[in-house]
Structure formats: structure tokens, C-alpha cells
Amino acid sequence: MDIDPNLMRDIIMDHYEYPRNRELTKDDSDYNSRHMASDSCIDDITVQSKIKDGKIEDVRFDGVACTISTASTSIMTELMKGKTVEQAREIIKNYFAMIDQKEYDEDLLEEAVAFQNVGKQANRINCATIGWKAMRQMIDESEEKKDE
């Protein structure tokens, strides 16, 4: 896809300066939580999710992170909220395909296409995927629980 760099930059700036869903809930009995501190030296973020009956009811995050981590996680929370686990998995699969420079469905990814060139700075791939990995882990866990 031909991207308009200005538009893409504005998306990232907007989510960095005004992150969505950036507030952890204290009432976490219904929430699963992932603290992502081991993936990189710098980013230290926590993602919370409320997954009920195969549906992602809520996603939140907070922490100290760079522009790319903050914006990519912020966009992820917006994309995940209200989706079924199957839909969420499909979006996550396409997002990682995009990061790996493979074929992906850009319609599914909406604003997340702003990160399609993040691999140009190979060391920043971690930043663009840290929140997404947290979400993927929590979805996997919720599915495992269901099978038990």
C-alpha cells in the first residue's frame, strides 16, 4: 500500500501524545494482566484485558515506553475492544505478518498500518509488538482456561 508519510506520522504522534485506554483498573478481579518488562531494556508496560464468553470486553494499558511502543499499544487496545477472540486473533495475525513484511489484510488493521515500515529500524520491532504480544498471550491464556 502506498502510504502518506504525513498521515502515518500523525497517527503515531496522536496515539503517543493522547494514548487511548491508558489507565489501569484497580478493580482487576475480572481482568487478566501482563507486565511486559523483559522484552526490551527500556519499555516497561502493563496491559490488562477483560475477556468474557469469547469476547474482549475491555483492554487497558499503562507504563513507561517510547513513541512506538505507546502508540502501537494504544492502537491495539482500540482494535481489540469489543471483538470476539477469533476476530482479535485474525487482527493480531495480520499485524505480525505486516511487521514481518509478509502479506496482510490492511483493512483489518485500520490505523495500525502506520507501523508497516517499523522494520526499517530493526531494533524497534520489539517496540511495535510489545503490547501486541501481551494481548496475544492473554488471549491464549483465556482460551486455555476455557478448555480446562
Partner: peptide, 10 residues
Amino acid sequence: TLEKCIDIFF
């Protein structure tokens, strides 16, 4: 600038 830091990805 912060914008320049993000522009490196495009």
C-alpha cells in the same frame, strides 16, 4: 524534533 524521530519509519 519528536516528529523527525517518527519520520524515520517512513
